[in-house]
């Protein structure tokens, strides 16, 4: 059975590829520095590295949707905003 029914495009392939790479990267990070670096951040939540990645990905999805709804279809600057958001989440949350 081929995968043609899944209707892949290189864009969505790249999207899932990046997520897979992120997960592999997080696993390697965990092997190098086990325990997930738990801490209590600015939100008053106890988070580990994995939680911070989840918050980053979910938040990024919402940032992109809000950008589409308010500012239109070119998402270049939304991606920059997501990266800034990711840095802030991994630094302070």
């Amino acid at each position: 059975m081929g995968l043609s029914w899944m209707a892949w495009t290189w864009q969505t392939g790249a999207f899932f590829g990046v997520i897979a790479l992120l997960l592999i990267g997080m696993s390697l990070w965990e092997m190098k520095d086990p325990g997930g670096n738990p801490r209590r951040g600015v939100l008053g939540l106890d988070t580990t590295r994995g939680d911070r990645l989840f918050i980053t990905l979910l938040g990024s999805a919402y940032i992109n949707l809000a950008w589409l709804a308010i500012l239109g279809p070119s998402l270049g600057w939304a991606m920059v905003l997501c990266l800034v958001y990711a840095v802030l989440v991994f630094r302070y949350v």
């Binding site: 029914w5 209707a7 495009t9 949707l65 589409l68 279809p73």
Partner: peptide, 25 residues
Amino acid sequence: TVVNYSVQDTFGNNVFFFEGTRWFS
């Protein structure tokens, strides 16, 4: 598969056209 469908248009027969973020907008 749903993610793949969400950026494309189809008229059936497994033929797809890339539409980017149009459906989301």
